[in-house]
Amino acid sequence: MSAENSIALDDIDRRIVAATSAGLPLVAEPYRAVADEVGIPVSDVLARMARMLEAGAIRRIGAVPNHFRLGLIANGMSVWDVDDAEIDDLGPKVGALVFVTHCYRRPRHLPDWPYNLFAMVHGPDRGVVAARIAEIADLLGPACRGHDVLYSKRILKKTGLRLAS
């Protein structure tokens, strides 16, 4: 989020991002295909992507599974009202649970929304997800004043990253 964590992308980096954000070409030399599209040598593509990977601008390179199609059809966004004094100690413990795929602190919107900890829990069915959420409740203990779980019903939109030019 903060400026010191970000790296500056120049125009060529942006063109690489635009050429790869929907995926790499499935050919024997995918980075060469990207290089040809961007109009630079393949060594530049490799060096620039290595720099973005190093800086964390690329989280990882590989297969992005579709949880729904892989049978992980229950996807519960668990939300928790955790004591502000304890959330930064407890959040990483929740995030370390193997079945939690994303874990963030976010603002409350009182009185509509009292929850400040969001933890995404995946599982093959809602029963398994509910048992996993009970584990989180145990872990949080009395620091948690309430929680809820929002199951996803439908994907309405899912696109890759798009950078403005």
Partner: peptide
Amino acid sequence: TRFGPLYNIDRMG
């Protein structure tokens, strides 16, 4: 859903 780099827009400013 795709095969390739997963970008972290937070680190791009």
